[in-house]
Computed example of a mutant assay.
Amino acid sequence: MLAILAITTPIFLLIGIGYVARWSGVMQREQVQGVGIFVLYCALPALVIRALNQQPLEAIFQPHYLVAYGLGSIAVLGAGLVLCLKLQRQPLNASAMQALGMAAANSGFVGYPVAAMVIGSPAAVLLALNMLIENLLVIPTALILAEMGNQHGSSVWKTVRQTALNLAKNPVLIGLTVGILIAVTGVAIPGPIEKVINMLADAAGPAALFVIGGSLFGLQVKGMMRDVGQIVIGKLLIHPLAILVAFLLIPDIEPIYFAGALLFAASPMISIYPLFGQRYGLGGVSATAMLVGTIASFFTISLIIWLMTLSGLITF
Rank of each mutant, 00 (worst) to 15 (best):
M1C: 01
L2D: 14
T9Q: 07
I11M: 03
G16V: 05
I17F: 12
V20M: 15
G34R: 05
G36C: 08
C42R: 06
A43G: 09
A43Y: 08
R50F: 06
P56H: 04
E58F: 11
E58W: 08
Q62H: 14
P63T: 15
A68L: 05
Y69E: 12
S73Y: 06
I74S: 13
I74N: 02
L77H: 08
V82G: 10
Q88I: 07
Q98W: 14
Q98M: 15
S107I: 13
F109K: 09
V110C: 04
V114D: 01
V114H: 02
V114M: 00
A116H: 10
A116W: 10
N130Y: 11
E134M: 12
V138D: 07
E147R: 15
S155W: 11
V156M: 15
T163G: 04
T163F: 02
T163P: 05
N166Y: 07
I174A: 04
I174S: 00
T177D: 07
V187A: 14
E194T: 12
V196F: 10
N198W: 13
A201K: 02
F210P: 00
V211N: 03
G214R: 04
G223M: 14
R226N: 13
I238S: 05
H239E: 08
I250Q: 06
P255W: 06
I270R: 05
I270C: 06
L275P: 02
L275E: 03
L275K: 10
F276P: 02
V285K: 09
G293E: 03
G293L: 07
A296F: 00
I301L: 08
W306Q: 02
S311N: 04
